[in-house]
């Protein structure tokens, strides 16, 4: 009744970061509720993955051919069976492609409450409290739950994954696959790998973006190196694309692409409204510009007024390797 159940998400044979993030948070919650942290691992031949789930007290495994790859219907059936059998207090599901299918399905099927877009989970005076990032991050909603169980669907990256990567030997329990798996309306067919090609800047976690302040094409390789060191890619504002210094696929802004990276490092971009439109939703914006009145500083979280050619070499050096 006071256990915390984490849906262990795995993709193509690997547990995802979200799983560790939830396991770490789950353990913290279980300590407060006085229950156990239990991981639900659905799949086929997934037992080796349990080795990475040392943080959990127990891993409940359901194995079935229909669970070999994620299947919204099959996974919902199996997870429902696990929940019904364990009757946990809190169910943690990542707010990811898989979690989206599962959390709401479970809520509707079992008639239990659900909070999505969650970035914070706490137990205060015995009550579970969540904070959800709503309205594109513009407003947070603090909610509480009465009764058990309840489903918390957590945003990727909300908690550190480290806390979920703890050595240990969980109890492995195998549950019989529900009969309903024999009769599905949704069938997994195959994996489709993404196509190669030029970088898709909308998919990058880190973008180093350049504007007119970069002055000449010769300076681009230097910035590219910085982007590489940050594990990201190079993007640009319109003038750079117009000059054909970078391909159109790298353009951020109104006539280019809208991006939402975790880090947007804007170098020599003054911040025309047309550009701002394309990047204002980045999680962290750091802007470097020589003009203290550049509008980009209105939108950036951190700003640096100065010559970017003074800063760049030092920054690169400090990032090392």
């Amino acid at each position: 009744m006071s256990d915390v159940l984490v849906f262990a998400e795995h993709l193509q044979g690997n547990l995802t970061d979200s799983t560790f993030e939830l396991l770490g948070k789950g353990r913290e919650l279980a300590q407060t509720t006085g229950g156990h942290l239990i991981a639900a691992l659905l799949g086929k031949g997934v037992e080796p993955l349990t080795e990475q789930m040392g943080v959990a007290h127990k891993v409940v495994m359901v194995e079935h051919q229909q669970l070999a790859a994620f299947n919204p219907e099959a996974y919902a059936i199996a997870l429902k069976a696990v929940v019904q059998s364990l009757n946990p207090s809190i169910i943690l599901i990542p707010y990811t492609s898989m979690g989206m299918d599962l959390a709401s399905a479970l809520s509707a099927d079992l008639g239990i409450p659900l909070a999505a877009y969650v970035s914070e989970v706490k137990i205060e005076d015995g009550t579970l409290m969540t904070v959800s990032q709503m309205y594109g991050g513009k407003v947070n909603v603090e909610s509480e739950f009465s009764g058990n169980p309840k489903i918390v669907s957590v945003l990727a990256g909300a908690f550190p994954a480290e806390a979920g990567k703890v050595e240990g030997t969980p109890v492995i329990e195998t549950m019989e696959a529900p009969n309903a798996l024999a009769n599905l309306r949704v069938t997994f067919k195959q994996w489709i790998e993404p196509e190669g090609g030029d970088v898709d800047i909308t998919q990058q976690d880190v973008l180093v973006s350049i504007g007119r302040g970069i002055q000449s094409q010769e300076n681009i390789p230097m910035v590219e190196e910085l982007a590489r060191k940050l594990g990201g890619a190079l993007s640009a504002s319109r003038p750079i694309i117009d000059n054909k210094w970078l391909p159109k696929s790298r353009q951020v802004g109104k006539s280019g692409l809208k991006v939402k990276p975790r880090l947007y490092l804007a170098l020599g971009i003054s911040g025309a409204p047309e550009h701002i439109e394309g990047m204002k939703d980045a999680e962290l914006i750091i802007a470097v510009n020589s003009d203290p009145n550049a509008p980009i500083f209105e939108y950036a979280h951190y700003g640096v007024v100065g010559d970017l050619f003074d800063l760049l070499p030092i920054l690169k050096e400090k990032l090392g390797g």
Binding site: N140, A300, G303
Partner: peptide
């Protein structure tokens, strides 16, 4: 099926960039 909303609040974000 929904949790009980306690309150709404705006995430902290300073006016403009921190220089």
């Amino acid at each position: 099926g929904a949790p009980d909303i306690r309150k709404l609040f705006k995430p902290e974000k300073g006016a403009g960039a921190q220089m």
